[in-house]
Design a protein around this nucleic acid. Structure first.
Length: 296
DNA sequence: CGGCGGACCTGGGAGC
DNA sequence: TGCTCCCAGGTCCGCC
């Protein structure tokens, strides 16, 4: 499921329930997700207070008192929901518009919150998600994080940075943007949307956006702005809800209504005056949606 | 090192 | 109704 905007939406949704709460117990209903849970996971987190919730790329970070941090990745189909801890547990499908099964409720964080007991439940049908725990002071050197590129939020990501990453590369732009070592947090949807917004073909070599002196061409500046804008727009919309992503209170994000190319194969291009048709191609085994007429 | 296909999983939808 | 096949917001690993 989730790219950066969806994970950020999850972080914001969980914050009121989790920040400042006591994590009484982490209940693991199976020994693994994509990877096995660390052997001491439940022991380490139980009885600890939650300081804050953060995010890096597509990872949710749960900072605990004492310097440990829980790392959670939602994979393709992971979601969290919050429940009142004084009420009986409701099945997983109660909250989900597409009927997620209770059998995929894999982790339950039992909390003593500022407003009483609560449960935060992790549901993940495909189990591509995973959790780990590490020390906050060594987080940046953790295998999941050490090679990550810049965040596409804020003002850090700029054309000069991408020029240094793309210089000399024959790799298609689509693949270069999906590579988390270049930009951390983009996925299939937002790469397609950002390329359409900037009028660039996903098939074009990344190196063609850099001049002979290693400086960004104007097109790369446009792309950088498009990336930042589409991510900001998507966060403001609560992310995109296609198959699995829902907010923690069960409501849907609505950025999917703003897609210009993603999942719009055969529909007319929305660029004014273009007249082209949105086309689907496969790159590195994944669908790319673009307008061959106005994306050069 | 770069790029690609396959693997990891389950479920929904289309087509027959 | 039921079967088969294809597809899915991600990432890792092994192979050229």
């Amino acid at each position: 499921m989730p790219e950066l905007p969806e994970v950020e939406t999850v972080r914001r949704g969980l914050t009121p329930a989790m920040e400042g709460a006591l994590l009484v117990r982490a209940e693991l209903r199976r020994p693994d997700l994509r990877f096995p849970f660390p052997a001491d996971f439940s022991t380490l987190v139980s009885g600890r207070r939650i300081i804050s919730l953060g995010r890096r790329a597509k990872y949710l970070l749960i900072d605990l008192e004492g310097g440990d941090v829980i790392i959670a990745h939602l994979g393709m189909s992971g979601s969290f929901r919050v429940e009142d801890g004084t009420a009986p547990e409701t099945p997983g499908d109660f909250h989900h518009p597409r009927g997620k099964s209770e059998k995929h409720d894999h982790v339950v964080f039992h909390l003593e919150g500022l407003n009483g007991p609560a449960r935060v439940i992790y549901n993940d049908p495909r189990r591509f998600g995973f959790m780990d725990i590490t020390r906050r002071d060594t987080l940046a050197s953790h295998a999941f994080f050490r090679d990550l590129g810049e965040e596409p939020t804020g003002n850090v990501l700029d054309a000069a940075y991408l020029a240094a990453r793309f210089a000399g590369k024959a790799q298609p732009l689509k693949s270069a943007l999906l590579d988390q070592k270049n930009i951390a947090g983009l996925g299939n949807i937002y790469v397609c949307e950002a390329l359409w917004r900037s009028g660039l073909s996903p098939l074009r070599a990344a190196g063609t956006l850099v001049d002979a002196n290693g400086k960004p061409r104007q097109t790369l500046a446009l792309l950088t702005e498009a990336i930042r804008a589409v991510i900001a727009d998507a966060i403001a919309a609560g992310g995109s809800s296609l198959r699995d992503h829902i907010q923690t209170d069960g409501t849907l994000g609505y950025f999917q209504h703003s897609f210009s190319v993603y999942d719009r194969e055969g529909e007319p291009c929305r660029t004014p005056g273009c007249g082209g048709t949105v086309t689907r191609v496969v790159q590195a085994g994944r669908s790319t949606f673009h307008c061959p007429k106005c994306q050069k």
